[in-house]
Amino acid sequence: MPPAIETNDLVKEYGELRALSGLDLTVEEGEFFGLLGPNGAGKTTFINILVGLVRKTGGEAHVFGHDVESEYQQARDAIGIAPQEFNVDRFFPIREVLMHKAGYHGIPTEVAAERADDALRRVGIYDKRNERFDWLSGGMKRRLLLARALVTEPDLLILDEPTAGVDVQLRHDLWELVTELNEEGTTILLTTHYIEEAERLCDRVAILNEGRKVTVATPDELKTRGTDTVSLTVEPTPETTPALGPYAHEISQSGDRLEVKVDNGSRITPQMLNDLEAAGYAITDLEITRTSLEEIFVDLTRQADRTVTRSGESESAESTEPREQEGVV
């Protein structure tokens, strides 16, 4: 079975602006895949190329093995998309909007009506089925976008910032629903600004910045790339800051309190304790603070200096490509 999404050297230029710069990305069938990146990173451009709303400038993009341009019908038939914008037909009650969408996908009217009802029930707005889009609340509109994406029973569900601006309850409802869909076998591509969302839902995430892939990894793998802080209280109070091995990127001291920046706190700490004890210190308190995914995200996408600190070495964002590609795709 071909991957759900496979792009090679995908390029999109808007005049002088390069929105995507040779993006290689593969999303396997059945995966819950997250796309993270700051505004303007190219996430929506990437999605819109897959569904035909943006024409690529170069490279290749396939959905379940179908080229998005030469086999656009097969590619689009496999995709259900819930976009950021409320691009819904305002002329008709929402049930009919869903029936139309199902119809465009070749689903006969009777079946389309059942599908529309099912989708509306699933997202919890069935009782609003005869209302028009403009009459729905913001949260209901978001739900409708998801229902419209689901009405064609897609193999690939694309969610572009699905929880932007929604309340906590709805966010949790949506998380529950998309998790359920993924468990049923639907491949899901999620773009989000919410790190917690990606961490909670995604099998793997790709971080994009300025149209380039910075990295692809599982949320847990990503976390190991950050710098943890090990806080220790030692006796006696050091007169000068103790010297530690190269694993310590930064040591700060305040009285008997030491703060040491290391890559993988839980792995490095035993060695650090040994080194401190060998230097004549007793450890009376210890705390490891792990880097949040958010901090790693900021670190990876920092524009001025996209440097990832790791084990005493410095790597540019671009140079992370070969490594993360081993585990990818």
């Binding site: 035909g52 656009y72 689009r76 038939d77 998309i81 139309h100 465009y104």
Partner: peptide, 8 residues
């Protein structure tokens, strides 16, 4: 977009 993203 509803039309354009469909397999028509």
């Amino acid at each position: 977009h509803e039309t354009l993203t469909s397999p028509l």
